[in-house]
Design a protein around this nucleic acid. Structure first.
Lengths: 196, 196
DNA sequence: ATAAAAAACTAATAATTGTTAGTTTTGCCC
DNA sequence: GGGCAAAACTAACAATTATTAGTTTTTTAT
């Protein structure tokens, strides 16, 4: 029927991936059929295959785009000379910003990665493990420098990563609270606690 | 072929639900076929229907069992007279314990609820909303009593709930850290922060 | 305007899905 | 050990799935 609409500098493949991310987020990877995706793009299902190789390629593109984004960021932070606590704060703010700006893709990478096939599944998990290791090292350094309390660094990383990840539930309340308040309060909560 | 094994006081339906929770957790609701579930129970797929009504009933049972568990707990805490900070600590510890003891079902309730059909979907979301409201009220009370810093209570609830939810990533590291350390460190992190 | 390339279409594929109907086997009670 | 209910089985269903082959339309470049 119609044609896939493209804006400047956006390939049709990217348009498909974006729409796929939106649908995978709301309905899950397995629940979205290629017909449904094509429908959302105003096209018949087989037409998609002029631009993509397979359904699973869509998931791969989404997951690794997100994975690379965070990897690049952590490498930048690691090579900086700021105090450890500032580094942690930077990471938390980066997570929050990225989560809110690339909501669909981050959500899908967080939730649907398990449907990746090998070797992509292994690669993705490896990227994630390395990211976590970097964070653990960061916390350990902070403890050594006495910037951070003596706690189990794995638990701290788990707590921080999970908390920022929870922003995926944010949409509902968007109206009430500004992103700035959200960011500041969460950073403060995770760094300084809530008890007076 | 074989028969569904039952222990004392456990109906065959419950055995099916448990196994379903395990499979739904690892492969997602949509990815687990009734044949696969039956296989895992040593039975043919149609035999399941002597005990259950449908695949979706399995998901309903799992989600509402978990939902009710948390609702009962929050109501108990609300009617107690302990200081607000203690109440919050109790809730965090309850989340951690429940997460670790009923891992499969909590995981499925957290991840697969979106595949519930109406009216179950609406009911489940309503239960969850009410739970969150109770927590927000608790934080607000704490702020009024000056037990807790002046922060946005929604952000605090989001941070706490997301952090404990993140325990689903815990399995991997189970070996290294005891549940007690995990619980104490996370409670401490969420209440008092990590910065010296 | 026309030829070539890109991208849409229709039709069809084999596999898998949840579930039903009907039948046979199993386990228990007297 | 005969009868009855519970629960297994086999066979089959209609629907849906991702994907392919082959064809026609649309866009692009000259």
């Amino acid at each position: 029927m119609a044609k896939i609409l493209t804006q400047k500098n956006i390939t049709k493949k990217e348009v498909i991936i974006q729409k796929a991310a939106l649908l995978f987020k709301t309905k899950s990877y397995r629940s979205v059929s290629m017909r449904e995706l094509a429908d959302a793009l105003g096209v018949e299902a087989p037409s998609l295959y002029n631009h993509i190789l397979s359904k699973s390629e869509l998931l791969q593109e989404i997951c690794f785009k997100v994975g690379n984004k965070f990897t690049v960021q952590i490498e930048m932070i690691e090579s900086s000379t700021a105090p450890t606590v500032s580094k942690i704060e930077t990471i938390i703010r980066f997570h929050i910003k990225t989560m809110l700006e690339n909501f669909d893709e981050v959500f899908v990478a967080n939730h649907e990665w398990k449907h990746l096939q090998e070797p992509y599944l292994g690669d993705f998990l490896s990227i994630r493990r390395n990211y976590e290791k970097s964070l653990v090292s960061l916390i350990e350094t902070g403890i050594q420098k006495n910037e951070i309390k003596k706690i189990n660094p794995y638990v701290a990383v788990l707590t921080i990563l999970s908390a920022v990840r929870g922003l995926e539930f944010w949409q509902r309340n968007k109206k009430n609270i500004s992103q700035q308040v959200l960011e500041d309060d969460m950073v403060n909560h995770l760094l300084n606690g809530i008890v007076n």
